[in-house]
């Protein structure tokens, strides 16, 4: 299985550096580049520039206005929208706190759990392959479908969780109805949804570890935990950084799942940044919604950067 594009790209890096070396390139291929080739990327570049890059830059422009989306008149308000978000808008700070908590929960739980599944299913036996396909399955469903399935599991009166608990004589909870716990239950759903996808990334990483390393470690008398700590963990570090980065972005944007499971707009206990931005937008506060989007983007960038630092520092400390 070539399921590991991250490392594949890294391994290819030296080659492309060679190609970038102008002296070598010129000597090796005297043929000129056909100018028609420059036409090929043009449609993609135009679409991305006009519909992706430009709107993103415009978000910065909108963010310093009080535009409502309809009237021709609006005022430039400087950084007021950003100040409002952090100091005067408890809905926004609530969504921000929820979002960071949700990301932290899902990243830790999903990374650990998908690694456990991958370790248990590394070997390409028939059973493993079948179980991998099963565990991967939820990933292909739409978020709204997954949300509906779990709404039923969590239903306090008729739901699956409480029927099962009731059958063994345990009083069930109210799950999503309990504001103190609701976010944790949605995190469980998110892990069920995507752990199988991350498991596949880990399996590719695990299968690339040379078996001789384990044999040598065993001869040296290393136990399973020591083998994991000094062979498996360092070797799957690239996979871990992919899993953590992807899970972070994915759980930052759990927009569809939250709307499906909590309704639109979601209650405060389940409001996250993307749903808050949408509510602000639906409330015709375009300028303010744009400012919130920029904070959202900055948060993703900040958290991703912090993680990269943390993950890079770990092997050095080993």
């Amino acid at each position: 299985m070539s399921l590991h594009p991250g490392t594949a790209a890294k391994r290819k890096a030296p080659d492309s550096q060679h190609a970038d070396n102008p002296a070598k390139v010129r000597r090796r291929s005297p043929t000129r580049v056909n100018p028609a080739l420059y036409l090929f990327p043009l449609p993609a570049v135009a679409v991305v520039a006009f519909f992706l890059v430009m709107p993103t830059l415009q978000a910065f422009q909108y963010a310093i206005t009080d535009w409502n989306g309809f009237s021709a008149a609006f005022n430039y308000v400087g950084l007021d929208n950003f100040i409002r978000a952090f100091t005067k808008d408890s809905l926004f700070t609530n969504a921000l706190t929820n979002n960071l908590k949700f990301v932290l929960l899902v990243v830790i739980a999903q990374t650990a759990f998908s690694l456990v599944l991958a370790l248990l299913l590394t070997k390409n036996s028939r059973g493993s392959i079948l179980l991998r396909a099963l565990f991967f399955f939820p990933t292909i469903l739409s978020s709204v479908s997954v949300a509906f399935i779990w709404k039923f599991i969590y239903d306090p009166n008729f739901g699956l969780a409480n029927s099962v608990l009731g059958a063994v004589g345990i009083d069930g909870g109210s799950y999503l109805g309990n504001d103190a716990q609701a976010l944790y239950w949605v995190a469980v759903t998110q892990v069920w949804f995507h752990a199988g996808q991350m498991m596949v990334v880990y399996i590719a990483g695990l299968q690339a570890i040379p078996r001789e390393l384990y044999e040598a470690a065993e001869m040296d008398g290393a136990n399973k935990w020591q083998q994991f700590k000094s062979i498996t963990w360092p070797f799957v570090a690239p996979a871990t950084s992919i899993v953590v980065a992807y899970t972070t972005v994915q759980s930052f944007k759990a927009f569809d799942l939250i709307l499906g499971i909590a309704g639109n707009p979601p209650k405060a206990a389940l409001d996250i940044l993307s749903t808050r931005i949408y509510s602000t937008f639906a409330n015709s506060e375009f300028g303010y919604a744009a400012a919130q989007s920029i904070i959202f983007m900055a948060m993703i960038a900040l958290v991703t950067w912090l993680q990269r630092r943390l993950l890079r520092l770990t092997p050095k400390g080993d």
């Binding site: 990327p41 993609a44 570049v45 991305v48 520039a49 519909f51 992706l52 890059v53 430009m54 709107p55 993103t56 415009q58 978000a59 909108y62 989306g69 972005v249 930052f252 944007k253 927009f255 940044l273 993307s274 931005i277 949408y278 937008f281 375009f286 919604a289 744009a290 989007s293 920029i294 959202f296 983007m297 993703i300 960038a301």
Partner: peptide, 21 residues
Amino acid sequence: GFLVLGMAIPAQANMVPLYVL
């Protein structure tokens, strides 16, 4: 680089200007 950089932009980040456009 230009084309791939777009992966870093979450859809919720530019939805307001995209809606207007």
